[in-house]
Simulated scan of single mutants.
Amino acid sequence: MTSSHGRGLLHLAAAVDQQSAYDAAPYAELARLAESGGLDFVTLGDSFARPGPDALAVLSRVAPQTSRIGLVPTVTTTHTEPSHVQAAVATLDWVSRGRAGWQLDVSTGEGEARLFGRRHAAPADALWREAGEVADAAARSWDGWEDEVTRPPQGHPVRVVDATEGQARPTAARYADVALVRAATAAQATAVRDQLRGQAVEFGRNPDTLRVLVSLVVDLGDGEHAAEPGHGGGGPRQTPHGPLYRGGPVDLAELIASWHAAGTADGFHLTPVEPRRDLERLVNGTVALLQHRGLFRTFYPGSTLREHLGLPRPAHQYAVSGGTS
């Protein structure tokens, strides 16, 4: 288990988003590359606000082409039927044999609300409360199925929440297995991690069942010597699109190791600027260095995403009464 000082197992994940990729093959290629480095999981974004393939459908196609890595699509809980969400996420867990997660997200735009015509846009805090209710309802639904028949392999597929914005933090603290935090400084990341762990305790959770990962955009194109001031050894730089690390794989390994050792985070979620190039350099450079230093796994000891994250399979809520109710 991860200690309160953050010196447990290091967790690493990567985004496999790509512009203008509309079939599963390019995503499968990146997922296999990430899997070769032993990463915990890959994410694929989705939104009502932009065109593109359905992330759940794409990763369901990627699942048979991978064997160990976790698969985490973004699932927008606003304007969607909870029963459809539950069935789709459970299906991903079945086809991946226990490697599914889902990144809960909300839709705050009036334009997106008009696409559905059901209701007007709502404040973010209300939508995040609703997202938590969807997560809770999904768990109860999955526990309503007999464990040996159709309950998802992990019991509950892993819940991921981007907790960068304050409105999302109570939902992350109460329901998430993994919280993502976009932070440009170690102090900023530490403060959010401490807040999330404190809120988890208030909700009656063991805070060691919540993994907090720092999210960074990474540009590994120019190597160590081309790092701009404020990048590389100096850490990420804040940009309009989020914290950006620009430099080489060696400095990135150093940053990851030092922030993790200091208890800043349980791990990192990295978004490559150029997907293929940067993910290759991440796996063959940064990850290889971390493995060499004994800071990251060289093989997957388990087969499910929960096992990668060091999280237990949730007990069946209705098992005590001897059946489903």
Rank of each mutant, 00 (worst) to 15 (best):
P170K: 00
P170E: 00
T171M: 01
A172E: 00
Y175K: 01
Y175F: 15
D177W: 04
D177I: 02
V178D: 00
V178T: 10
A179R: 02
V181Y: 01
V181L: 04
R182P: 04
A183E: 06
A183D: 05
A183L: 07
A183Y: 04
T185G: 09
T185C: 13
A187V: 15
T190N: 10
V192L: 01
R193C: 07
Q195C: 07
R197A: 11
G198C: 11
G198P: 12
V201W: 13
V201Y: 06
F203E: 06
G204P: 02
G204D: 07
G204H: 11
R205W: 00
R205P: 03
P207A: 02
D208W: 02
D208S: 15
T209D: 07
R211T: 06
R211S: 11
V212R: 05
V212I: 13
L213A: 08
L213Q: 12
L213M: 14
V214I: 12
V214L: 11
S215C: 10
V218N: 08
D219K: 11
L220N: 07
G221D: 04
D222N: 11
G223Q: 00
H225K: 14
H225I: 06
A226I: 02
A227I: 05
A227P: 01
E228C: 07
P229I: 03
G230H: 08
H231Q: 12
G235I: 06
P236H: 06
R237D: 10
Q238H: 11
T239F: 10
P240S: 09
P243A: 10
L244G: 09
R246M: 12
G248Y: 04
P249V: 05
P249L: 08
V250Y: 09
A253S: 10
E254K: 08
L255Q: 04
L255A: 01
A257N: 05
